[in-house]
């Protein structure tokens, strides 16, 4: 059971590209600690012989679709929610690998 502290919240925030100030770090650390604490009640149950549940529909298997084309969205619609665009591209803050 990992302890939720500011260090972990900071790490998760970084992975999620969230910028948190000190007050928020403090607040979320204590909130998350209490949420995880509550959920950890589940650990009291012995699950040694219970396989992990990864899907709610446990009997369902092999749901496929045929390799058939469907209409894509109109580019206008695709880009309508984009904060920034350039021609038909999404425009994002510069990311250059390895430079």
């Amino acid at each position: 059971m990992p302890l939720i502290d500011k260090r972990i919240v900071k790490h998760v925030a970084l992975l999620s590209r969230l910028e948190l100030n000190d007050r928020e770090l403090e607040l979320y650390s204590s909130q998350l600690a209490s949420i995880i604490g509550y959920i950890s009640k589940l650990n009291e149950i012995d699950t040694t012989n219970v396989p992990p549940t990864s899907h709610a529909a446990s009997n369902l298997k092999n749901v496929f679709r045929k390799d058939v084309l469907r209409q894509s969205l109109d580019i206008k619609d695709v880009l309508s929610n984009a904060p920034a665009r350039y021609d038909n591209f999404f425009k994002v803050p510069q990311v250059i690998e390895g430079k």
Partner: peptide
């Protein structure tokens, strides 16, 4: 996982869906 075309070299973002 969706019905969008995989054709190479098409107009940017023209083969996308929700």
């Amino acid at each position: 996982f969706c019905g969008c075309s995989t054709l190479f070299g098409q107009k940017p973002n023209s083969q996308t869906c929700p």
